[in-house]
């Protein structure tokens, strides 16, 4: 099941079609076709009853983070430091497994990585996805593991170098409660539906969960830290970027759209925004 984008008119192709075409033709942020395709991690062991199935948004993250521009930027940023990467909302683990297994190609060096998800099933699935993706590695990165948690509430402040978040961004009337707060379910169907809703439903403007994560960014990132956040058109990305520039604490913060897909009538349906700070890193 893919996140269902709010219908923005007749003729919106179903997410599955988009997924297929994107997957066949990976493109970088400026639309260039990526020639040196890195392998997509195998998630065939994952049960998608409660876990988000890798979709257009997941693949946009893979394509963007392995694009020539981002690879160049990241290698320069972490030329003399082993980056510690945290992915929030790993789901199947396809993104963190990709970045851990292909760290040499993306960051120019091995990395440390940690996954967080609100759903313990997703944490177990991620462990297996990373294990499979890194099985062939000999001098590889170190995946610390996955923890269950509410965003980054249990992470040491000032420690994260690379934060990746594919949020529940679809506008919804209600924001689903965290699993720890609502444990009683009538049956398995209700349980599974609730966990799946957590992977997609973002409340007002689809931004309620993302806004909470934004509030953590200034305290979470290291001086050389960078965050990659996926937004959809209904999240009003331009307004979000202005807010980041003007109101995110401990700034000034810079933001730039570094990947996008699903252009329709001049609007990008999905985009990935890079957020970083130039104060201490001294490059970029």
């Amino acid at each position: 099941m893919a996140k269902q984008y709010p219908q923005d008119g007749p003729g919106t192709p179903p997410a599955n079609t988009l997924l297929q075409s994107l997957h066949d033709l990976p493109r970088g942020p400026t639309g260039e076709i990526l020639t040196n395709m890195l392998p997509t991690p195998d998630t065939s062991h994952v049960s998608f009853n409660t876990i988000y199935e890798p979709s257009e948004d997941s693949f946009l993250l893979l394509d963007t983070l392995s694009s020539t521009t981002e690879v160049t930027w990241l290698r320069k940023r972490f030329a003399s430091k082993t980056p510690y990467l945290v992915e929030v909302g790993t789901g199947s683990g396809v993104v963190i497994a990709f970045l851990t297994a292909n760290a040499e190609q993306v960051f120019g060096r091995p990395i440390l990585s940690l996954g967080i998800d609100v759903n313990a099933n997703a944490c177990h699935a991620t462990k297996e996805t990373v294990r499979k993706a890194t099985a062939e590695q000999t001098a590889g990165s170190l995946y610390l593991g996955s923890i269950t948690g509410d965003l980054c509430s249990s992470l040491l402040p000032g420690s994260v170098d690379v934060l990746v978040f594919n949020p529940p961004y679809v506008p919804s009337e209600e924001l689903p409660a965290l699993p720890g707060l609502e444990r009683k379910y009538r049956d398995k169907f209700e349980h599974d539906s609730h966990l799946l809703a957590l992977t997609t439903d973002g409340g007002e403007e689809g931004m309620e969960t993302t806004t909470r994560l934004f509030a953590q960014i200034p305290y979470l990132l290291s001086p050389s830290g960078v965050a990659y956040i996926l937004l959809c058109a209904q999240n009003r990305p331009e307004a979000v970027k202005s807010w980041v520039a003007e109101d995110l604490p401990k700034g000034p913060w810079l933001s730039e759209t570094v990947g996008s897909s699903g252009k329709k009538g001049g609007w990008e349906k999905l985009q990935i925004v890079r957020i970083w700070n130039e104060k201490a890193a001294g490059n970029g």
Partner: peptide, 18 residues
């Protein structure tokens, strides 16, 4: 106390601590 089960630590807090 945050429990660790099958290698996965659980850092979700109960309602009264959020």
């Amino acid at each position: 106390e945050y429990p660790i089960k099958e290698g996965v630590g659980n850092f979700l807090l109960p309602p009264h601590l959020v």
